[in-house]
Design a binder for these strands. Structure first.
Lengths: 225, 225
DNA sequence: CATAAAATATGATATTTATCATGTTTTAAG
DNA sequence: CTTAAAACATGATAAATATCATATTTTATG
């Protein structure tokens, strides 16, 4: 099993502030897991009891609403820590996490890492910063949901995926989502999401082939009203 | 000037975890302020550089969207700490804070309290918990915005105001908001908010007299579809 | 590779919400 | 108390989005 001390992934999240000794101890109690596309990592109401360090892959954090639709709140990717809230609260998970492609993750039990949160001020400050950042992002999404059209939100989602997660060699978005996922990010009906994507195609803003989407006119997308 | 050590308001927020000595020091550098209804506490883009402890009153945290509408993201009330994010990030404020009625607040400079965040683990854990809680709430609002109708969101807002902030002796909601504020919480046009409130009146769910709103049928409001 | 199931696509229509217009009521200032 | 401004209210209409129906394409699986 690989060691946390040597893992480069940790550079991208709060674990980077743990000391050598702390990392060695955590390395000894972590479990590595492979998670297949579509698999549930945890669900709303689950007791999570630890954090997942994402070594590879992407998952969605979503919440089921009363009308049966899943609202995607955040995408969590390689390098991120998943389930930081569980370290801090005694509550059950508020969101579900589902793999969008095959993933490699390490699970660190809460019992092992919780003490570092109070002993290592750098680490707790990092977690605080991360949470503050998530909070700002969430506030921004609230504003977008409330004030922007489906067209705008979908255009912004495509821009976000392009700028945050990049493209494959063939220039298509490296994050591959179903039309339903797009609808669940934007907060609209699947048919509406499909319709808007079709419009974008007709306008030459994107091109598609199956689930693959290529951004053809980034500036145009940014200007969508 | 009153002293933090003896202030009961701090019991309701993270400041309760500061030691006697820390409180005495902070008491010496805080500034008490009276803020009039409608006054701006800070604006998007401002450098906040400290936290406000709300001794009395209510304010709204909102963000201006591109179309010129203000989206209210959160209400901050007596007992809460305002501006916790500023302690953690170097960024400027992401939201504006505006008093909804006359307020009494104490301002604690970041420079004085930041060191406590790394020295006092109880305090930083409290701030973390608070932030985790804000994050959960924000995620829930995203889901509501995306999946619920204006009617439902407005009904839920009324229930929230009733259950979180209570009523005056005459049974009207103690938080008094303009129709525009309601629209800006729900994320709809002012006319739409007014129309829905009128419907609720006709259905006997609420009654109004000017800005005062009385919940007449709480269960009915909770069942609004 | 055949076939069923799932995902994508598009039209027709209904519903929700926004916008514009205009009148009424409430509030604040002198 | 008067008066102007702001807030509230409501109708008419337009625009955005959801829903339902149905066809086509893609994907998964034996």
């Amino acid at each position: 099993m690989s060691k946390c001390e040597q893992c480069i992934v940790k550079q991208f999240n709060s674990l980077k502030s743990l000391t050598k000794e702390e990392l060695v101890r955590i390395s000894g109690c972590k479990t590595s897991k492979t998670i297949k596309k579509g698999e549930v990592i945890f669900e709303e109401g689950d007791i999570v009891n630890g954090v997942f360090c994402i070594k590879d892959g992407i998952c969605k954090l979503s919440k089921l609403s009363a009308n049966g639709k899943d609202q995607i709140v955040k995408l969590v990717v390689k390098g991120d820590l998943l389930g930081q809230r569980s370290l801090v609260t005694e509550e059950t998970a508020n969101l579900s996490a589902v793999a969008l492609n095959d993933m490699e993750v390490c699970f660190i039990p809460k019992s092992e890492i919780i003490s570092d949160l109070s002993k290592n001020a750098n680490f707790s400050m990092d977690v605080l910063k991360d949470m503050a950042n998530d909070l700002r992002q969430a506030d921004d999404i609230i504003v977008n949901m409330a004030q922007k059209s489906v067209r705008q939100r979908l255009a912004e989602t495509l821009v976000y995926l392009y700028e945050s997660f990049g493209t494959n060699p063939d220039k298509t978005l490296s994050v591959i989502l179903s039309r339903e996922d797009y609808a669940n990010i934007v907060g609209t009906a699947v048919e509406s999401a499909i319709r808007v994507l079709s419009q974008f195609k007709k306008q030459g803003l994107i091109s598609t082939s199956g689930k693959k989407i290529k951004i053809e006119n980034l500036e145009g997308l940014k200007r969508v009203e």
